[in-house]
């Protein structure tokens, strides 16, 4: 079964993102929201980690990016921007939601 993993903490402050990355399997998806959106930024120490995850789709919550002044151009290529409705769609599409709070 494929999971939607959610990360809402900055990868520069907490281990949630790294922990999530260590437990995702091919076919799953990761949604970055709240302070987790900083893991979706280009040119950060996280970019390599996001790009090297094979067969995993990455999403970032647009409203949280916008709130933090992170423009869409700064989002890592291949990371899809979604809104809350998109978050709901992902939660429904994947078999379960695993929150790395």
């Amino acid at each position: 079964m494929n999971a939607l993993h959610t990360v809402n903490k900055s990868p520069f402050e907490k281990r949630s993102f790294d922990s999530c990355m260590g437990h995702i399997l091919e076919g799953s998806a990761v949604l970055l929201y709240e302070d987790g959106v900083y893991a979706a930024m280009k040119g950060t120490a996280m970019e390599g980690k996001v790009k090297s995850a094979q067969g995993v789709r990455f999403y970032v919550l647009g409203p949280d990016l916008k709130a933090r002044g992170v423009s869409e151009e700064r989002v890592i290529d291949g990371v899809e921007i979604v809104d809350y409705a998109g978050f709901v769609d992902l939660a429904a599409e994947l078999d379960k939601v695993v929150a790395w709070v």
Partner: peptide
């Protein structure tokens, strides 16, 4: 991956 529900 094998779970139905994960509580955090």
């Amino acid at each position: 991956a094998a779970q139905d529900v994960v509580f955090s």
